[in-house]
Design a protein around this nucleic acid. Structure first.
Lengths: 197, 197
DNA sequence: TCTTTGTTTAACAAAAATGTCAAACATTAA
DNA sequence: TTAATGTTTGACATTTTTGTTAAACAAAGA
């Protein structure tokens, strides 16, 4: 997640990401973004032409960031167990920094045609699913549809961060305490998903 | 989730909920809502005065619907196991009908002051957490912070429905197939969260 | 220095969304 | 039938947000 000064264009994009992904302010206007970046709003149009195009770039990059996680974790010669640990580690770190990134993607794809999402074909998940299947055959993890396994994993990682405010209100816990709970989750999730018999 | 004709006011509110909670169109305008309800936009103002007030009502009711689930499932003299089944059943059914209800709540609370959420105090979760603790002491479920247990449960239920479009694109599966997977999840979640030793 | 190129700004224009109002309409009770 | 009340509508006003333009500014090369 870059935040360095690669010029105004990058600054605007990074600021937009910060507002959407970190603050979860999905209704932010171009003015909000410009203000937060400390630049004149016209520059948003100078560099991105329109609000829509800025959004498309941000969306595209967020999708790539997600794909990258899968790719990074599942290339190399680690064992499944190690890959899983790596995936949990990287994904949780990113999601703690940008808890609303997925939420942004979801609402943006809902905004227009749902069909757009279907075009995306991801090459990184296939080997992941295959490895999960292998691991089930070996008896190391509980047998189920590998897709369920994958959904469970991402659900356990993403949801509590995504719904932090909601959970805090329902569980009546403070920000600090919640942060403490989140830090414990890496280990907890691993134990749930890859139990030591 | 009422959809009956309790007059125009109710129709507008139900339509708004449908657009937000079922379609996930968080950026819908008052015009969008009026069109979908088949009424003149002025009526939105006649009944709710302003867009903001309509949103507040919808938000408030959605929060109550969530509280109601907890309350319903955890009153009465069922065993923990039965209560859990009931909770999963009701929550999954509702979330399948309104997958974006929580997403709406999250973005709405992010929109203004985060603080607002903190005021909410929920009386229904406390007995739930206490019962979870008991069940751990009995050795029926895995020992952990009961709050983690609760987060896990809701994560497994809500996230795959919330992120359906995203998941479909990453897992390259069709709507039908996804629906089939979702129907399997009630049992799967119960087995994960309340394992038969 | 002057020109060229790219960046930034303020002022303005256009579009989109919300909000207001008076008049038309419908229903019911007197 | 008429008066009273609440509902619905279209026309208009206001506000908010996005998009455009010309001019000012800055840096670098001829």
């Amino acid at each position: 997640m870059p935040v360095k000064d690669k010029g105004t264009e990058q600054l605007i994009k990074d600021t937009a990401k910060k507002i959407f992904f970190a603050d979860g302010k999905l209704h932010a206007t171009t003015q909000d973004i410009a203000d937060a970046a400390g630049v004149n709003r016209t520059l948003v149009h100078y560099y991105f032409r329109s609000r829509k195009l800025l959004f498309e770039q941000v969306t595209e990059e967020a999708m790539n960031e997600l794909r990258q996680i899968m790719s990074d974790a599942f290339t190399g010669k680690l064992t499944f167990k190690e890959k899983l640990k790596k995936l949990i580690n990287v994904f949780m770190d990113q999601t703690m920094a940008y808890p609303y990134r997925e939420l942004f993607l979801i609402t943006e794809t809902n905004r227009y045609n749902q069909a757009h999402a279907d075009e995306v074909h991801d090459t990184h998940t296939k080997p992941f699913l295959a490895e999960i299947k292998e691991e089930m055959d070996k008896g190391n993890i509980q047998t189920m549809d590998p897709r369920h396994y994958m959904m469970n994993l991402f659900a356990l990682m993403a949801y509590p961060l995504l719904s932090a405010n909601l959970s805090k209100s329902f569980l009546k816990i403070s920000d600090q305490e919640y942060h403490k709970l989140m830090k414990q989750r890496k280990q907890l999730i691993f134990d749930m998903i890859y139990p030591t018999k």
